[in-house]
Design a protein around this nucleic acid. Structure first.
Length: 643
DNA sequence: TCTTCTGTGCTCACCAC
DNA sequence: GTGGTGAGC
């Protein structure tokens, strides 16, 4: 879920257009041009994004595996603590924080399932008899497998839709395209605009039967359902009534809800999992919407956030719930402003607001990050184990090495079922005595087709010896934690630039540059690319940087639309490069603005470029501030301003 | 009822040195 | 290569 732009610097281009009066674009008129354009990407006013997740996923996996009655209370435990509680069990007041024994007291007939475990010699994780943390290691692998099955159903049901697996039980969907297609099918009169009418707004949309689709997040906050009903008849002022009139985007959301209802039903019938979904105009809001469960108990599991409801939905939200604001940055903001909700921050944004564009935008529900299928597998794969009974003799290491190795073998094999050439370049073994007290050693890992516990163990045993060599003679060993991981996971193919498929931004230094396809691999091999070997790009006259277009395999000229027309494809390229230019200009504009209002913004970042990891950069930035400024309190650490 | 807050035991990513 | 942190589930 990488945004393309540094979150703190994201060109607030869109908001500069229509700006402060309508940051969420909820009143933006949708024209024929909007409707018929295929190239607006995240700026599409008809964008529909969904997040689908499974409730109490681990518990659901066990219910399916065991074939238990869905009404029976069930929990999944990891040693003594609960890691998943199904809905029937929640009715007994059991929560994830309970210990297994306490939960059992609350509900004597509770079904307690232990997570799958390995012990030495096991080829795969399983539900073996009594488990013992002193001999076993837990494994979530069966849940990963189930997660993969769900993802496959998603893909089958929505071919051509970009689906991004966000975690073991969540995925984002960019439904914009299928929704647009459905829209044009259902309302064919929309498709027949003459060129001169392209910029006229669409005719009024039809009414929408929300009740059949899911739960609509109310425009007016703090009203009980009764209030809402009453309000609809007479109490709500005219202006609000206006706002709640359906828009074409609402129609689009409703079609998105239909699509999600379809895939959810397929997941239920094919695999037995129930899911929830949130539908909104972007990923950030879709995610928040999905977690809206107020009236969303068992029946309606789709929540929909209309543009008109965004502001009131966000305002009371504790902002530290927002991704990237949950950590130290959020804490610093909270302390600086004595604020806790989004609403609190909206009033005081201007002090640092311009140097924190990402925050400015996200508080207003603006998020342009793309839904993008994960193109590569994990960069690393790790297994670790807390040892309740610390190791005291070096010879005890071999046992745990084999257990951790079994976990990695199993997972690598599973990954290779889909990507046979997957190759972890290094193996790392770590042994720790406690906080910050330990070491790790690594060794190159050969490309072997049949990776086995023995192979890994033979390498790891050597690493273990090295680690033991670091120990002081005669001192107690006392290893409390062991860690083994594969790093540098990639594919063994040559010319693997296409694996990434996206532009790479190698580092976050001043002098870094965006490299178009490091090895010159065609962006879109074959037919449709205007130029098979060059990423479309432009060079900024102000900063001299060359900005290249990110290529996304859901792009309009790609397979799904069947657009084979090269000139059309070229048009797409050009308009998208234009967008990119605008975005980049916005970036400079924002930078200038910041300099004027807040002193110099010292972030040392390249402009908004495609293909870089926002997370990476944000973290880099905040971390470097912390480390360079030492104890500097407050928010300045994050938005480094100077007089 | 909903939310939120804690915590543990992982897993993954990234950066500094 | 190695150590260490932040963050999310």
């Amino acid at each position: 879920m990488d945004a393309e732009i540094h979150p703190l610097l994201k060109g607030k281009s869109k908001s500069l257009d229509t700006d402060n009066t309508d940051p969420t674009h909820q009143h933006e008129a949708i024209t024929y041009r909007h409707l018929l354009s295929q190239t607006l990407g995240s700026r599409d006013p008809l964008r529909v994004i969904a997040l689908c997740d499974s409730d109490a996923f681990y518990a659901a996996c066990e219910m399916v595996r065991l074939g238990t009655d869905p009404e029976l209370p069930l929990v999944v435990q990891q040693w003594d603590s609960l890691i998943a509680v199904n809905y029937p069990a929640r009715k007994f007041g059991i929560s994830r924080m309970d210990k297994a024994a306490d939960a059992k007291k609350k509900c004597p007939e509770l079904i307690c399932v232990h997570v799958p475990t390995y012990k030495e010699g096991d080829a795969e994780p399983g539900h073996w008899g009594p488990v013992d943390p002193r001999t076993h290691k837990t494994s979530l692998d069966t849940y990963r497998t189930e997660s993969g099955k769900i993802l496959n159903v998603f893909k089958e049901e929505l071919p051509g839709v970009e689906i991004e697996k966000a975690s073991i039980d969540e995925a984002f969907f960019d439904l914009t395209r299928p929704v647009r297609e459905a829209l044009l099918r259902r309302y064919p009169h929309l498709a027949s605009a003459s060129p001169k009418d392209m910029d006229t707004p669409l005719p009024p949309p039809p009414p929408i039967k929300w009740d059949e689709l899911g739960h609509l997040i109310p425009i007016e906050p703090e009203t009980t359902p009764a209030d809402e009903k009453e309000g609809q008849s007479s109490k709500i002022p005219e202006a609000v009534k206006e706002e709640s009139l359906p828009t074409w985007h609402d129609v689009a959301l409703s079609i998105g809800a239909e699509l999600m209802a379809g895939v959810r039903e397929k997941v239920r019938t094919k695999l037995g999992y129930t899911t929830s979904a949130g539908i909104a105009r972007n990923k950030f809001l879709a995610k928040l919407t999905a977690s809206y469960r107020k009236f969303n108990s068992q029946v309606r599991r789709i929540s929909i956030l209309r543009n008109a409801a965004i502001a009131n939905y966000l305002r009371p939200m504790p902002f530290q719930k927002i991704r990237f604001l949950g950590g130290k940055l959020g804490k610093a903001i909270a302390e600086e402003y004595d604020a806790s909700t989004v609403g609190d921050l909206l009033c005081i944004q201007n002090k640092y607001g311009e140097s924190a564009l990402w925050v400015w935008e996200i508080l207003r529900g603006i998020d342009r990050s793309e839904v993008k299928a994960k193109t590569a597998f994990f960069k690393s794969m790790s297994a670790s184990k807390n040892l309740l009974k610390p190791l005291v003799k070096p010879a005890e290491g071999a046992h745990w090495i084999r257990i951790l190795a079994a976990d990695l073998v199993f997972r690598l094999k599973a990954a290779r079922a889909e990507q046979p050439t997957l190759w972890p370049k290094t193996l790392v073994l770590g042994a720790y005595k406690g906080f910050g007290n330990g070491h790790s050693k690594q060794a190159p890992f050969p490309f072997i087709k049949d990776v086995s516990v023995d192979i890994i163990a033979s390498i790891a045993d050597k690493l273990w010896k090295e680690l033991m060599g670091l120990e002081v003679e005669g001192a107690p060993l006392n290893i409390r934690h062991m860690h083994m991981s594969f790093t540098g996971v990639g594919t063994a193919e040559t010319g693997q630039g296409s694996i990434e498929g996206f532009l790479k931004n190698l580092s976050a230094n001043e002098d870094d540059d965006v490299l178009p396809f490091t090895d010159g691999t065609p962006i879109n091999p074959g037919r449709n690319s205007p130029d098979c070997h060059t990423a479309p790009s432009f060079t900024c006259t102000r900063c001299g940087k060359t900005i290249s277009l990110e290529v996304n395999n859901s792009d309009a000229f790609n397979d799904a639309t069947g657009a084979t027309d090269i000139s059309r494809a070229r048009l797409d390229w050009n308009s998208r490069v234009d967008n990119l230019k605008r975005e980049h200009e916005d970036y400079h504009y924002a930078l200038d603005l910041t300099r004027r209002t807040n002193g110099t913004l010292k972030v040392g970042m390249p402009g908004p470029v495609s293909g870089s990891s926002s997370k990476k950069k944000r973290k880099t930035e905040s971390r470097s501030r912390v480390s360079t400024k030492g104890k500097s309190p407050g928010i300045e650490r994050f938005f480094n301003t100077s007089k």
